[in-house]
């Protein structure tokens, strides 16, 4: 009984860490315009819209976070193998991983911008200095929280994978969940604030991103402020639920029915989410209504 209570405590802590990590991850990537919305930041100068948005194209979020987390975990593992206290080891590992992240961010911005010289997009050194540090701070939160949760899973819950392997697994999952949830909110709602609300961006409008802020010219810190309102927390809850429910069903129900307990609970959770998803979809169809009359169906 005691071990189950302990397991649930660790599960809850891991879920909470994952929530923080997901929120920080998405805010970081939106400040850097990483992932798919990056295509618009890249496209805008080619359409004549010179901007002051940070363009940090390291890779898609899943591979990039696969590296940052695996690196933080690998260095933390190395320091722990040298008999350094795990907390200090994780902090040092995350710190060095963030240094690598920062260097990659600067080279990506310089490289992409220099390659757009033909369209007159200048390199803004102040953008480089102020945005890189902010993304590094967010990335540190994300990396530290995720490496800590990997360490908890390995050391306290007894998962067989060593720390770097868990890092690669949860790093890619973190990037996948964060980019899937957060990207549309930044890509559509923020970059194309000037387009109609409640509709996709017409393909003809591509590249015409919003470049001016409430006062002055928009930079990526304004974008971080915006995505921290919904995209970031939603990504956090998404990744937190993934980690929490995955651990919860295993810790509590794996012993029941020689493993089948966890499987049945997993199926039930999937069905619950399916019902929620269907409810959201139908709710939207009812309340937002069709854009055109159904009669035009045949012509489109």
């Amino acid at each position: 009984m005691e071990s189950i209570v302990f397991g649930i405590g660790i599960t809850a802590l891991a879920g909470a860490l994952a929530t923080v990590a997901g929120a920080a991850e998405n805010t970081e990537s939106d400040i850097g315009s990483q992932g798919d919305p990056n295509s618009q930041v890249q496209l805008a100068p080619q359409m004549g819209y010179i901007h002051r948005i940070f363009n940090k194209a390291v890779a898609g979020e899943p591979p990039a976070y696969g590296l940052w987390i695996a690196l933080g975990a690998g260095i933390a593992w190395a320091f722990m193998a040298m008999q350094i206290n795990p907390i200090l080891a994780i902090v040092l590992g995350s710190g060095i991983a963030v240094f690598v992240q920062g260097v990659y961010a600067t080279t990506a911005y310089l490289g992409r911008t220099a390659s757009l010289a033909k369209f007159g997009q200048p390199v803004y050194v102040d953008i480089l200095k102020s945005m890189t540090t902010v993304t590094m701070a967010h990335a540190f939160v994300a990396i530290f929280a995720t490496v800590t949760l990997c360490h908890l899973i390995n050391a306290a819950l007894g998962h067989p994978f060593p720390l770097p392997l868990l890092g690669i697994v949860w790093g890619i999952a973190l990037g996948a969940a964060g980019s899937a949830t957060g990207n549309p909110f930044y890509g559509k709602e923020r970059q194309y604030q000037n387009q109609k609300f409640g509709a996709g961006v017409p393909i003809a409008a591509s590249g015409n991103i919003v470049r001016y802020a409430e006062a002055g010219e928009r930079n990526s810190l304004d974008n971080g402020w915006f995505s921290a309102k919904l995209g970031g927390p939603a990504s956090g809850v998404c990744f937190g639920l993934i980690v929490f429910l995955e651990l919860w069903r295993t810790v509590l129900f794996e012993e029941i029915g020689a493993g089948w307990g966890a499987i049945i609970i997993g199926i039930i959770i999937i069905l619950v989410f399916t019902v929620i998803d269907r409810y959201i979809e139908v709710w939207a169809r009812k309340n937002y209504g069709p854009y055109t009359k159904p009669a035009e169906e045949a012509s489109s």
Binding site: P184, I242, E246, F273
Partner: peptide, 30 residues
């Protein structure tokens, strides 16, 4: 099967949140 459910669970939560953001964050139906 446990592995399969783990993958399905991850996708179920992620896909639900994609629709959540589209509908409640951006007002766009699927």
């Amino acid at each position: 099967i446990t592995g399969a459910i783990g993958g399905g669970l991850m996708m179920a939560i992620t896909c639900m949140f994609v629709n959540f953001i589209y509908v409640f964050g951006m007002g766009i139906p699927s």
